[in-house]
Design a protein around this nucleic acid. Sequence first.
RNA 1: UGGGGCGUCGUCAAGCGGUAAGACACAGGAUUUUGGUUCCUGCAUUCGGAGGUUCGAAUCCUCCCGCCCCAGCCA
Length: 565
Amino acid sequence: MFAKESTPPSNFIRTIIEEDIKTNKYNGRVVTRFPPEPNGYLHIGHAKSICLNFGLAAEYGSHCNLRFDDTNPSKEEIEYIESIKSDVRWLGFDWEDRLYYASDYFEKLYECAVQLIKKGKAYVDDLSAEEIREYRGTLTQPGKDSPYRGRSVEENFDLFQRMRAGEFKDGSRVLRAKIDMVSANLNMRDPVMYRILQATHHRTGDKWCIYPMYDFAHCISDSIEKITHSICTLEFEDHRPLYDWFLNELNLYHPQQIEFARLNLSYTVMSKRKLLELVKEGHVSGWDDPRMPTISGFRRRGYTPESIRNFCERIGVAKRDSIVDVALLEHCIREDLNKRAPRAMAVLRPLKVVIDNYPENQVEELEAINNPEDPNMGSRKIPFSRVLYIEEEDFCEAPPKKFFRLAPGREVRLRYGYYIKCEKVVKDEKTGQVVELHCSYDPRTKGGWSPDGRKVKGTLHWVSADHSLDAQVRLYERLFVTANPLDEKQGLDFKSYLNPNALQTLTSCKVEPSLKNIALGSRYQFERLGYFYVDPIDSSEGKLVFNRTVTLRDSWAKIVRKSEN
RNA sequence: UGGGGCGUCGUCAAGCGGUAAGACACAGGAUUUUGGUUCCUGCAUUCGGAGGUUCGAAUCCUCCCGCCCCAGCCA
């Protein structure tokens, strides 16, 4: 693990940076930035970008800025800014005193625009949005010049000043770069630089009624911050000529834009728009619903920042579109929690077991190891008594082949307890449901060892009925039933692939008494079941609510699945 | 049918003219008081296809095929 972390895999961005350092392109500097728009919560795709940008900076002994790309007040909110900051921090990254906003640069941006106007490289256009679209042409047909393209520098300057002064209404005019209406790259067909928006900005208030567009604001913001490598996703590749054009025309410090493929994860969706839709339509409880691929969702699910960082490193960085198997993410969190999470016993679907030959009222304290992977975590005592609960699925009246658990007449081990043998099955007369088991125990097998060396095939987890604590447990599965919900075959909407069983809430779970006063947000492995997280929001004094982060690998389930097919 | 990208194992992904890393997944086996963990073993004679250059090609050239992105006053 450490070897892996100390020698990060090679990728094309690192190669570019190494080359730039060698040729002294930026005097050996490496400065990056993470530039989210505060219009939604961060998802694991952003985590990839965060790890990349902050990681690269750290690797080259430099820094990465956090900059909010807040140029569109109609979509952006303070709530998102706060969530983004806390998510980046939670992931383990630090922007120190370099928290920036594109809106901090509005005045500078305005000056740049004026400069382009004076250079004859920008003009105010009175065409409507629809007309601009028409004049732009199509993918295969060139565009044509706006009738306003030939305005004088003086007129453009005057109009632009009056746009800023609020003399015109929304949508009536825009400022455009004068580039090339017949360019094969649509982004170069006189892109809009400023639009009029009579909106209150979350930071600048009503100071502005014109707002810069992404292409104009982003390159200049990068330049102001002396970024060296401006890393963004593939869809901006076509924008690079424009990025370069603005900086060249303005004669500004010029960072290098580099594009990589965004992360896609199987069994989920990654676009903010779609995630917002799930939130707004109530398919999930919020942005931090543990079913969501958001950073806050994974946090609430019980994922650790380490596991997510490790995942981001393992998936690599490249330019080809891909869908990473969510099994890799699950592997990363299991790997982390296996080493760190203390073990405990919890019974999700309790089946009552009475040990008939165990003395009534007797209680024994048995020793249980907290984490077999880490002896330093010590051990604890768990009470054993005559009436216990075991997992419903650990008993089978007519066991199939390879079923090693409890069955009539069969002996199994209770973990850290005794060997018990099923003597009698009690069923509900009406439903035929097994409601209780009567077993006998072998007093010589205390702790789970047999002096005569006889072996049992199965070891079950259990809790003492009188000593156990009640708990609510939420079992989470994948949000979608299909690996690629965007593959909308037969015209099906991605939401038609939503997994109706992605959340199952169990309310009559029983957990061992040592979990009495555990900390909110702590993580446990419930033996044989999976890793669980104490939900910090819904748990309270005397009320335990656990979220299942991920199940343990389950080779028995695999066998069952195979035999079913 | 314009422009920009991309095609290496089921999924990610190294490789940059010297004869296909690694991870996940999967399949066997060993160990095991978690059917967990750990540990072995197997898993691309082949790099989208076809030609060509070369002693030698996933790497260079040519053509072809496929996939993604672009026609917001979103980012």
